[in-house]
Amino acid sequence: MKEQTFWPLPIIAGLVLGVALGLILAWLIAPVQYHDTAPDRLRADLKEEYILLICETYAADGDWAETQERLVELGDRDIGATIMEMAERAIEQGRPVSTIRHLAAVANRYGVTSPAVARFMPTVPPTPSPSPAAERATPTPAPPLLPTATRTPTPTASPTRAAAGRATYTPQPTATPVLLYRLTAQERICDADRPDPLLQVVVLHDDEEVGGVEVVVTWRSESARLFTGFKPELGLGYADMIMESNTPYAVQLAAGSDEVSGVQTAPCTSEAGPRLVSVRLVFEKVGTD
């Protein structure tokens, strides 16, 4: 009797061996290498160093919009609390008081404070730095975009700014400002297919896009009101407008949200050549109407 082998057996054996070897190759020997990562992918200790740098930069130039933009890149939804934890840990580790103060100043701007850290805060505003950069940085709090809105989107407990544009390190009450929407992501996109840079806004609630949300955009002495959902092919919670070069924009949701200021395009290089960066802001609903 002639011995018969079930014919798919060799192919199955080869397949299993191929998959096993392929996965070893793809995951262990030659995994995908990411060389152009974002700060949210940094190792925990390096991420903390990055946060500290952001806080020190804020102490140096007082640019809150830029500080917010940098912190958003870290993808931490409770960044104020994270920074305050770092300040508390800095006390435990006996790090310089200036480090604690720089961290606490930013955490305070998010409405987060701690009795332990408050002890290290100066009672008088710090003397402005005589550096040329600090002299040039004269940030002033942006006027409320919607003076008639019943909700107050900016924390009333935020530090006042000294004449030279430096934040005063006044310990803040523990109350967290009530906002209906929070900025959860800010991405810069170098789109090869798009010659004009776009300011894109996406509004989410429980990961679902929300239509009909009014977005107020201001720049120079102009303003525009956009509504999400007018381009349904791009998503119910999506709205956009074309940005001009060298123009900082401020974006806020009319219902009450973080104000994102200093949003602007910049040159970038795409696969198709030089382009201008589009900026995508994602807001998520955190409060109730």
């Binding site: 192919i11 054996a13 299993v16 061996l17 191929g18 070897l21 392929g22 190759l25 793809a26």
Partner: peptide, 24 residues
């Protein structure tokens, strides 16, 4: 079963391809 080796080779290459797509 006449040609088990070529069949196994085909299976191996197919598996390798699938795995690389999955892994990369």
């Amino acid at each position: 079963m006449k040609r088990p080796v070529p069949l196994a080779a085909v299976g191996f290459l197919l598996g390798l391809g699938i795995a690389l797509v999955l892994g990369w």
